[in-house]
């Protein structure tokens, strides 16, 4: 429970940070709540820890317009607490999910980008970014690139982000008509999600449109729930209860991959509770969307 020896650098610019990360034994440090416990357990033994804390440019939340769509751009080093304080409109599910991360102390240190980059399979934020159709912006020695949220994580603590790249920001499309929400069953021992479900949808002409529903804690990577999404399209927003419940019942249909389990929560239990938390997330998202129907951006 004491970290191994390593070097430490605290670059004050993105370029300097990328230089430091070019060393193959270097790892980036943001909020530290994923990395530091792993260092303490000596599960990771980097040569250099590159503290990103000096990169002020990667902090902050702003509205941007790109390609004619409005998006919320969240600097990767924005802490969970700072995002919640900013309370931006149009990202309900992301705010719900962020408020569930760890606890108050952890949210004060933990960052949105760090949460995504760590790719913990039961972390809350990735469900929301997937449901929102967010884009991650990466920068590396060969320049910038963008990755859709659904293509970022490739496994338990594995992503497409190479060792010499950094996530700089995440951009979330804003749709003033949409409503979103996140609901989770807290894992009794880890405090992460046993399962967490983010939902985002719109109401058009009194019916559910464009539903996107994503779960974490279920597989090694965040996953959309295609059967739920399909069943939600066109649901009467005026009397949705049975239809939403019916859609949620199909949560495990079409899921591709081994469901996670541990000695506390089995795969079977995760699948069994998934509909309940899907229903909660979808119902809450729908209630919010109904409130916004007809509001002009």
């Amino acid at each position: 429970m004491f970290p191994p020896q390593f070097d430490y650098e605290r670059p004050d610019s993105l370029d300097a940070a990328l230089d430091a990360l070019a060393d193959e034994d270097a790892v980036p440090l943001a909020g530290g709540h994923d990395l530091v416990p792993m260092l303490k357990a000596r599960e990771r033994t980097p040569g250099t820890v590159v503290d990103l804390g000096g990169l002020a440019a990667l902090r902050g939340v702003e509205r941007v317009v790109a390609d004619g769509t409005e998006r919320l751009s969240i600097g990767a080093l924005t802490t969970d607490a700072a995002l919640l304080d900013a309370d931006p409109a149009g990202v309900d599910a992301l705010l719900d999910a962020t408020s569930e991360v760890g606890d108050a102390q952890i949210r004060n240190r933990g960052t949105v980008g760090g949460n995504l980059a760590a790719a913990h399979p039961a972390s809350d934020i990735p469900a929301a970014t997937l449901a929102a159709g967010a884009t991650l912006h990466l920068v590396g020695p060969d320049g910038d690139r963008t990755v859709p949220a659904g293509e970022f994580a490739t496994g338990d603590h594995e992503t497409v982000c190479t060792d010499d790249e950094l996530v700089t920001r995440v951009s979330v499309p804003l749709d003033p008509d949409a409503g979103g929400a996140y609901a989770r069953k807290t894992h009794p021992s880890t405090g992460y999600a046993a399962v967490g479900v983010a939902a985002r949808l719109r109401v058009v002409d009194g019916a559910v449109a464009d539903p996107r529903v994503a779960a974490v804690g279920l597989l090694d990577v965040p996953t959309r729930l295609p059967a739920v999404e399909g069943a939600l399209v066109g649901v009467d927003a005026g009397s949705p209860v049975d239809a939403v419940a019916g859609a949620a019942e199909r949560a495990t249909e079409g899921i591709d991959g081994a469901v996670r389990e541990d000695h506390v929560v089995s795969a079977g239990q995760r699948c069994a509770v998934l509909p309940e938390y899907t229903e909660r997330a979808v119902s809450a998202a729908l209630a919010r969307a109904v409130g916004r129907e007809g509001v002009v951006a």
């Binding site: 430490y8 440090l29 530290g32 530091v36 405090g191």
Partner: peptide, 27 residues
């Protein structure tokens, strides 16, 4: 606990409560 769960190590750092077992001293 050493794993960031228990909060016994909580201090305020620049006005915010943090778990000091998950922060490097150099930070």
């Amino acid at each position: 606990c050493e794993s960031g769960k228990c909060g016994a190590c909580t201090v305020e750092m620049d006005g915010e409560v943090v778990k000091s077992c998950c922060v490097l001293a150099v930070q």
